[in-house]
Design a protein around this nucleic acid. Structure first.
Lengths: 163, 163
DNA sequence: CGAAAACAGTTGATGCAGAAACTAGACTCT
DNA sequence: AGAGTCTAGTTTCTGCATCAACTGTTTTCG
C-alpha cells in the first residue's frame, strides 16, 4: 500500500544538480549584488516589480502577489527599503487599510545601475549557453512545475529590460 | 563598449519561471517537512549526506564540501541537530582541530520517516511529469551552469534512496 | 441595519544565514 | 627546531524570514 517509488539514478542526479544550481546561483546573485550595488536579491526583486509596472507604484498586496512573499516579509522589506530611500510608502485613500509602495528616483537609479551586471551574470551562466529549444523546454517544464505547485505562471515585462 | 544585452522575451519568461519554481518549491519542501516531520530542509540535507556515506559519519569539512555551506552555518546547524539528538559530534584523534559528525539512530529514523513523503512531492511536481529525455536535458543544462559557476557537479548515492 | 467574516497590513518572538574575527592545531621550509 | 602559513572549526554580530497574534477596515448577508 505505501510502497515508495524512489528516484531513479538519473532522476537523482538531475535532482541534486537542481538543488545545487538553485543554492549556488542564488548565493552568487546575492553576493554580487551586495558587493557591487549594495542591494540584496530581495531588494532587487522588489525594484524589478515596481519598475515593471506603468506608474511604478503598487499596492502592498499586489506586490506581495507578484513576489509570492509572506506579507510580514514584504512589510519589513518595504520598511527597510523606505528607510534607505529606494521606495516610498503612500497611504491609500480609497481603502484606508491599504498602502501604496512607490518607486523613488533613487530606487530607479539603483536598479538601473545594478541590472546590467546582474543580467550579464545570468547570461553567462545560463542563457548564453542554451539553445532556443532548450529555453523553450525549460520554460515548459518550469510552468508545469508551477501548475503542480498550484502557483500561477509569471509574465514577462513589456520591454525585456529588467530581467 | 558597455552595451547591455538584455534577455529576450522568451529568456525572460524562462528566467522568471525558474525564479518562481525555485522559491515556491523550496518553501513548499520546507513547510511540508516541518509540518509532517519536524525537520527543516537544512536538517534533511544534512541527514541525506550522512546517510549517503558508508559509515554514516563525516568530518565537518567534508560535510561542508558536500553541502557547499558556509562553515559557520554548518557549525550551528550541527550544534542544533546534536542538541535534538539527530547527530552526534565526535572528536577526531588524528587531527585534534577536527570533529566528526555521526548520524544517530534517531537521525536515521527521522530521515527514514521523512523521505517517502518528500520524494513523493518531488515526483509529483517534477519527475512524474518529465520524460527521460527531459530529465537528461535538465541534467546536462544544470551541470553546465554549475561548471560556469565553478562548482563541481554532484554525484548520486549508490542506492537512489534518499532523494 | 448590524453581527460575523474576510481583508490589508503591522508587530513581536524566535530561529536561521552570512561575513569577519578569532582559537587552536598542523604543515612547510630552510 | 621554529617562524610563517594554512587549515578546521567556533563565535560574534547583524540582518533577514517565518509564524502567530494583533489592529483597524471593508464586505457580506440574514
Amino acid at each position: 500500500m505505501d510502497e515508495v517509488k524512489w528516484l531513479s539514478n538519473d532522476e537523482q542526479v538531475a535532482w541534486r544538480a537542481w538543488l545545487a544550481v538553485n543554492a549556488q546561483l542564488t548565493a552568487r546573485m546575492n553576493r554580487d549584488l551586495q558587493a557591487k550595488n549594495g542591494l540584496s536579491l530581495a531588494d532587487y526583486d522588489v525594484l524589478v516589480n515596481l519598475t515593471d509596472v506603468p506608474d511604478r507604484s503598487l499596492r502592498m498586496f499586489e506586490l506581495g502577489d507578484k513576489l509570492q512573499w509572506e506579507k510580514s516579509r514584504l512589510s519589513r522589506q518595504v520598511m527597510r527599503m523606505a528607510a534607505r530611500g529606494l521606495v516610498e510608502r503612500r497611504e491609500c485613500l480609497d481603502d484606508r487599510r491599504g498602502a501604496f509602495v512607490d518607486l523613488t528616483p533613487a530606487g530607479l537609479e539603483a536598479i538601473r545601475a545594478a541590472a546590467p551586471e546582474h543580467v550579464k551574470l545570468i547570461r553567462q551562466v545560463m542563457f548564453d549557453a542554451f539553445t532556443p529549444d532548450e529555453v523553450a523546454t525549460l520554460t515548459k517544464l518550469y510552468h508545469g512545475v508551477l501548475e503542480r505547485l498550484e502557483v500561477k505562471p509569471v509574465e514577462a515585462a513589456a520591454d525585456g529590460s529588467a530581467a
